[in-house]
């Protein structure tokens, strides 16, 4: 399963609670669309760290890195290349 698929599945299962793939576009903003609740971002960070074996620093916890499927995929790629 690709990073994108893993992240999509995680979001659909844990925040949208559906199997309907059409409910999530890879560019949907988690914040603007209300996909995450106040602590949801922490759950995503735990998931990324566990699943992809990377450590996210405080200053990396910003919407530019984490606010959509595509942004997370790109962020993980960058981190894995570090």
């Amino acid at each position: 399963m690709s990073s994108e698929e893993k992240i999509r599945e995680f979001i659909l299962e844990n925040y949208l609670f559906t199997d309907d793939q059409s409910e999530l576009n890879n560019d949907d903003s988690f914040l603007d669309q209300g996909i995450l609740d106040s602590t949801g971002i922490l759950e995503i960070i735990f998931f990324i760290e566990d699943e992809f074996g990377i450590k996210i620093k405080d200053d990396e916890m910003v919407p530019d890195n984490l606010d959509s499927v595509n942004r997370i995929v790109a962020f993980i790629k960058r981190k894995q290349q570090e």
Binding site: D37, S38, M61
Partner: peptide
Amino acid sequence: KYSPASSGGAFGQQF
């Protein structure tokens, strides 16, 4: 233990 205020600056503020 997990607070909206601690959940990452921009994300917490959004809340």
